[in-house]
């Protein structure tokens, strides 16, 4: 019976995790001003939106801050929008966040040695395919190969 209770509690926890709401932590404060409000200038808002789509929500399982209802994601959207409105460049804001949370916060892989294999992968795959296929095709179309 205790095992059942434990598993039920586990299942419940999973549900709550899946909803990305901290189980007991629900603050009552309204969201930050720019969490759910767009910038007036559509060009700036587009810039902010493009950046927010590539920043990872730290409280969620695996979501960008632009896709999350977690309060902290809202606060981060507020940060991004106010900084964009103040004239900062998106990449500067990304760097600012990476300085604080490490590369984890950015869905866009950073240019660091540890990421180089990831960027080399497509080239590597194409070269491998070319090597494996070399000499496999029939050269002379007149030769029927039988």
């Amino acid at each position: 019976m205790t095992r059942f209770v434990k598993q039920f509690a586990g299942a419940l926890l999973l549900v709550l995790l899946a909803l990305a709401h901290p189980a007991t932590a629900q603050d009552l404060l309204p969201p930050a001003p720019y969490a759910y409000k767009q910038l007036e200038d559509p060009a700036l808002e587009a810039k902010a939106q493009a950046l927010m789509e590539t920043l990872r929500c730290l409280k969620c399982q695996s979501q960008a801050i632009s896709d999350s209802d977690a309060p902290m994601a809202g606060d981060m959207r507020h940060q991004v929008r106010t900084r964009i409105a103040a004239g900062e460049e998106p990449e500067a804001i990304r760097t600012w966040l990476v300085e604080r949370y490490g590369d984890y916060v950015s869905y866009a892989p950073q240019n660091k040695p540890i990421m180089w294999p990831l960027f080399a992968a497509p080239l590597f795959i194409l070269v491998m395919a070319a090597l494996l296929l070399r000499g496999r095709f029939r050269r002379d179309p007149k030769d029927t190969g039988k």
């Binding site: 960008a64 984890y104 950015s106 869905y107 892989p109 540890i114 992968a121 795959i125």
Partner: peptide, 30 residues
Amino acid sequence: CGTLAIVLLGTLYPLMTEAFDAKVSVGPPY
């Protein structure tokens, strides 16, 4: 198969870098 390899690699890459003590995210920009 190239696409498949990229998807598999990108999905597992955060786990690989953790072996080198680096926490990274691979997402739509990749």
